[in-house]
Design a protein around this nucleic acid. Structure first.
Lengths: 87, 87
DNA sequence: AATGAATATATTAATATTAGCATATACGGA
DNA sequence: TCCGTATATGCTAATATTAATATATTCATT
């Protein structure tokens, strides 16, 4: 089983969930903090946090703490391309 | 939960598996029949068939029987774009 | 130091995905 | 019609994902 295929499939899999797609899409649209994502996704905050973790582990996003909040951003170029291709 | 997000996420999820990514990638590269996919993926034929079914249900591929064989092709434009974006 | 807001972690039950095997079906040729 | 090749389907056990709840942490303000 091709390792490159696994890598790419894992990337798609990470974004391939409604909540996570919504998060990445929102981040590309300028949203930043978790509270906004909770509103936008309609799921409880800990659930959002879990999905943020999955995206972080996949190397798709990164968070920067600014005071009380954490500002997330998409750091993966391929992820950006994929989400934007689905506009 | 946004229905458009769910639709797009489902598409990504369908391709977001090593075997299925390999299949779609191979189809875009000119491969067609199941036997080739069995070789390329290294998994047993029934397993390939199951994944073909998942891709078919997701509206990504379509198969045409030609005599003894079935020729598959990618019929989803977004799927093409996504896989090609990951070249 | 106490409080409140923002976010993260742990745990767990429910559910979904996956892989493989056995078997079935479809078709072409003898 | 029987056989072999190509592909599909049914079933099941193992594993992974998901969502929710309870709780913990981090930081700013007072």
């Amino acid at each position: 089983m091709n390792a490159a295929h696994k890598r790419k499939a894992d990337l798609l899999k990470a974004i391939g969930h409604p909540i996570r797609f919504c998060i990445v899409d929102g981040l590309l649209g300028g949203e930043q903090n978790v509270a906004t994502m909770v509103d936008c996704t309609g799921v409880p905050q800990p659930t959002v946090s879990q999905h943020l973790n999955i995206l972080k582990s996949a190397g798709i996003i990164e968070g920067q703490r600014i005071g009380n909040q954490v500002h997330y951003m998409v750091i993966n170029k391929e992820a950006k391309i994929i989400v934007q291709a689905l506009k």
